[in-house]
């Protein structure tokens, strides 16, 4: 039986009384690729915000391996092995692709470490390896602001991969991508899922079918259904939420 990597229990957050996430339980296994779907305002992005510490929970617990995440500052979470890609590509547009990856390289993370940081062969090899995975080898010296929208999405995924996280969270990774780019991304996600757990938020059902091991459906901050893509799509409650109103 697979080990549980992330255990979310009784997670609740309220904004001025409005519960965006309400008593949520969610378990992610090691090396699992989980997709979270749900209508707008279901609380999907908020769940990711809560896991990575961007938003503080009102109550409940998030356990990652043996650590309680709700009490830790963001940078410590990342150092534990939790990576997060934002909905709109969040890269350093004034730096080159190479520099973007270099900054994300998990060494020299404190002030004096950063002063002493050297571009040695280990770093260079890793950067080239990642660049290869995210289809950007040819563009390493390009200023990243000049990349296409899809390439920016890949770069951000690469910036997370270079940290070798055990849990990777991607918020709408194929938004704004062409069909070809979508297929390449599906291939990329399936490849990286072999070594780690992934949580992906996505609206594109075709894409979800290509990648998901299991699917969780959120609605009004609560877990509505969970299981394989087929079972979820057949679930009457899910159908009602998506088509009912």
């Amino acid at each position: 039986m697979a080990q549980i990597l992330l255990a979310i229990e009784g997670l609740t957050v309220s904004f001025d009384g409005f519960k965006a996430v309400d008593d949520l339980n969610l378990y992610i296994e090691e090396k699992e690729l989980r997709v979270i779907i749900g209508p707008n305002g279901a609380g999907k992005t908020t769940v990711l915000d809560l896991i990575c510490g961007k938003t503080k929970a009102t109550s409940g617990s998030i356990k990652f391996k043996d650590s309680e995440l709700t009490k830790l500052p963001e940078y410590k979470l990342v150092q534990l092995g939790v990576g997060r890609k934002f909905q709109t590509p969040s890269i350093y547009e004034n730096l080159t692709v190479f520099e973007n990856l270099e900054i994300s390289y998990p060494k020299g993370r404190n002030v004096f470490g950063a002063l002493r940081f050297k571009r040695d062969d280990v770093v260079l090899n890793k950067i080239h390896e990642i660049a290869d995975m995210i289809f950007l080898t040819e563009l390493l010296e390009i200023q990243s602001g000049l990349l296409s929208h899809g390439q920016k999405q890949w770069l951000e995924i690469g910036m997370l991969l270079i940290q070798d996280p055990e849990l990777l969270m991607l918020d709408e990774p194929v938004a704004g991508m062409s069909v070809v780019e979508r297929e390449k991304t599906a291939e990329l996600l399936n490849k990286i899922a072999k070594g780690r757990s992934l949580i992906v938020i996505e609206h594109d059902m075709e894409f979800v079918k290509q990648i998901a091991h299991r699917v969780s459906v959120l609605h009004q901050g609560k877990l509505l259904a969970e299981g394989s893509m087929e079972s979820v799509q057949a679930n009457p409650k899910v159908i009602e939420v998506y088509l009912g109103h």
Binding site: V78, Y92, L95, I103
Partner: peptide, 17 residues
């Protein structure tokens, strides 16, 4: 420079900004 342009990304890359 990265902090100036995208503080959150730096924070979520494991740095104590």
């Amino acid at each position: 420079l990265a902090i100036r342009d995208k503080e959150d990304r730096v924070r979520f890359s494991g740095y104590d900004v």
